[in-house]
């Protein structure tokens, strides 16, 4: 499984959402992605990619797209 596939799967599993909706997905636009859902997402990303995200990045991760950018630029993941 590629990193992108793993990344997508985390969103799909965490928020029970269809893959086709991922690209436009933003924080607080679905019931599941609330504050608790956000922490669950962060924990899943950290566990999957063996990283510890800084608080600033946890706050900046406000959309599916933004998350990809953060993981790529800050955590040097090929995604």
């Amino acid at each position: 499984m590629t990193n992108l596939e793993k990344y997508k799967k985390i969103f799909i599993d965490t928020f029970n959402i269809d893959e086709s909706k991922l690209d436009s997905l933003e924080y607080n636009t679905i019931t599941e992605w609330d504050s608790i859902g956000h922490m669950t997402l962060i924990a899943a990303l950290e566990e999957q990619f063996k990283i510890t995200m800084e608080t600033d990045d946890v706050i900046d991760l406000s959309s599916f797209k933004k998350g990809k950018q953060i993981l790529k630029e800050k955590y040097k993941l090929e995604i």
Binding site: Y27, N28, D34, S35, I42, T55, V58, I59
Partner: peptide
């Protein structure tokens, strides 16, 4: 989304929630 009330604008809350 009104920004002020969002978790993503509350860094102290994020820290505590993570703990």
């Amino acid at each position: 989304m009104p920004i002020a009330s969002s978790l993503l604008k509350k860094p102290r809350l994020v820290e505590k929630l993570r703990k």
